[in-house]
Amino acid sequence: MEIYINSSFAISPYDSSRNFIGMKDGRFACIEPDYDNILDARQLRRMSRIMKMALTAAKKAIDDNGNINPDAIITATGLGCLEDTGTFLTKISDPDNRMMNPTSFIQSIHNTMAGQISLFLRNTCYNNTFTQTSLSFEHALFDAVMLLNEKPDNSVLLGGIDELTTLKFDLAERLHLAEKRSNGYYGQGEGSAFFTLSGHKSKVIVKEFILPFMGDHSDIGNYIEAKVDTNDAILLSGNPGNLQDPDDETIKQLFEDDRIIDYKQYCGDYPTSSSFAFWMANQLLNGGIGMPDLDSDLSDVIIHHSYPGNSQSLIHLCRS
C-alpha cells in the first residue's frame, strides 16, 4: 500500500522562515517556542526540555492532522533523556551529595517521551521506542510502515528526538569532536520532529527505504540508478561536514552538485537527525516552503544517512 505523510512538525536549530541557523562554536541549539502558550503550567512544571520539545512537536503534528488520536505512537531516540540522565548520574557519583530526585530518574528512561505523549493524548494504543544509534529513526519508520501494512486503516504518530546538553557537548568534544571540527565537522546538534503517517492520500508518499539488512550497501546506489530521475530529485546527505566517507561519495556522484544538500549544516549531527531530514524533505515536496530556492518540478527527495564505516540508510520520499 502507499503510505503518506499527513502532517509534520519540527523543533530544530533551523528557522526556515528567516533562514536562520541556531549554531555557535560547533553547538547547534533548537529554536524553541514559548511553551507557556502551548502546554499548561501543570503539565510543564516537571517536564525536561527534551520532553517539552517532543510533546510540542507531537501535539502540533496531530493538530495539523485534524486532531486525530493516532493508532500508534512510535518514537526514536539515540541517546534518550540526557539532561535527566546526567543529573542523576552526577548525584549518585558524588559522595558528598546523596540527595537524588526521583523525577530525574523517572524521566531518564528512553520511552519517557512516548509514554508522556500517550498520557497527554489519553492514548492506549501501540507504543514503542527505538534506540539503535544513528538508525533509530529509520527503524521507527520501518515499524510504522510495517504496522500500516498490517492495519491499513490506522494512522501512526512517528517522531525522532535527541537533545544536546552541556555535559554531552563537553564530553563529546573531549572524546574526538573538537579535533574533527577543525576538519570541517559542522558540530553537535539536536531536534524533535514528529509526523503522522497513514494510507490517507496527501502530497507526499513514503516511497521506499533501504536499511542495511535488506541488502548490502551497494543496493542504495543501485536503487537510485534504477528508480530515481536525479534531475528532478534532491539528495539530502547526512554527511556531518564534508568528512571523508566513500559510501557518501558514491551516492553523491549520482547527483549534480546543485541537487545535493548536506542537511546537517542546518541541524547539526545527532543520532536521529534523519528525522529532521524527513521533515525537510516533506517541506521541500510540499512546495519548498521557506526552503532554499528550488525549481517547481521537484518530484523526489532521497535521504541518505551514512556514518563513515558504520550504518547506512536510504529513505525515498516523492510527490503523489
Binding site: G80, I109, H110, N111, A114, N127, N128, T129, F130, T131, Q132, L135, H139, L211, P212, F213
Partner: peptide
C-alpha cells in the same frame, strides 16, 4: 538486522 528497544 540489529535493532534495540527501550520501553523500560
Amino acid at each position: 538486522f540489529v535493532t534495540t528497544l527501550n520501553t523500560a
